[in-house]
Simulated assay, not measured.
Amino acid sequence: MADRTTLVRPPPVDPTKSQIENVLELTALGQIGPDMFTNTRPLWHPPGARGIYGGAVIAQCLAAAQRTVPANFTIHSMHCYFVLAGDATIPVMYYVEHVREGKSYATRTVQARQGGKAIFTTTMSFVRENSGGQRMVQHAVPLPDDIVPPTDEGLEADDEDGNAPFASRRIAILNKDSTNSHEKRTRQWIKARGKISEAGGHQAHLSALAYMSDSYFIGTVARIHGLWRFGAPTNPPPGAIPTPEMAVRKNYMRKLKESEGLHPDQERSSDQPEIGMMVSLDHSIYFHEPRRFRADEWMFTEMASPWSGDGRGVVQQHMFAADGTLVATCFQEGVVRLKQDTPPKPSSRL
């Protein structure tokens, strides 16, 4: 199994489904045990990242749990922990545990495992729809003023790795010149590519939202502090032959810089702090309006960081449908460590 990216041979891509539905497809393993699943297709490993894209594991855990609750129960919150970096070269096994079956709420835990070790764990709560009663308290953060959805023009060119199942359009940082990092806001428009199938139902849109919620989440801390996060120069040493992996990473980083308004060949200035390590530790999503959005239509996200310190950072994200409906609120904490100055070598003189 060590040299296989999936447990069983992937079937042909289903043309009736969107790209993100195919990416997140699960294979049930009922012959092995109840409520066990595995990834049907290989999972994406972003160039230069320590492991697979975290949003894929978040979304597949949600997709697995959604299969185990009644049709009239909908996810309202999930709390996740990234335990180990996922390996894109071996399958992921998802184990769903039924924690509680209530009249209004149901609880599930899902553990993602590779090589016998947990790489990710999450607890999810589902609520029976329309169980809040006829009289309710209601309020929501509004969509910021003067926000205009983008068009689909040039959508294919906005693909950072050549095969991304979602598109994003970043907006300039709000309050970029503020001396207080917590006042800055990073913003983007995001949507699944293609059209999510009717057969996928609202569950497919929720899984797609979960997948996209991890897009540049902890990276907000780096952006508001102006940290260099594009790695070392991607050109091979003189005389070296570029490998295909090097070419993919170079192209990925060039497009990443362009999305940040930088020249694709720009390199780090000597006085600019550089990220030494940036990985997600935990991820929470509160789903507010599970049937009032489509993940294949543009959604607006705004992120802010209330705190960073001790080698970590926390980011809050609001996700809106284009009509202004607040559909989700997310939080993430991650490791954000800077490369440290190399200490001077001790003098050989006595």
Rank of each mutant, 00 (worst) to 15 (best):
I171Q: 06
I171L: 15
I173E: 13
L174V: 07
L174A: 13
K176F: 06
N180V: 12
S181T: 06
E183R: 06
K184A: 01
R185Q: 14
I190K: 06
G194K: 00
G194Y: 02
K195Q: 14
I196V: 11
I196R: 06
E198D: 11
E198N: 12
G200I: 05
A204S: 12
A204W: 03
H205V: 03
L206I: 12
L206N: 11
S207A: 15
A208Q: 02
A208L: 03
L209I: 04
L209N: 13
A210W: 05
M212Q: 11
S213R: 00
S213F: 03
D214N: 08
D214K: 08
S215K: 01
Y216V: 02
I218Y: 06
G219Y: 08
V221L: 02
I224M: 09
I224T: 10
L227S: 05
L227F: 11
R229F: 09
R229W: 15
A232C: 02
A232W: 05
P233M: 02
T234P: 00
N235P: 01
P237M: 13
P237D: 01
P237K: 15
P242L: 10
P242F: 08
T243N: 08
P244C: 10
E245W: 13
M246R: 11
K250R: 15
N251T: 14
N251W: 03
N251H: 12
Y252I: 06
Y252D: 03
Y252F: 15
K255Y: 10
E258H: 01
E258D: 07
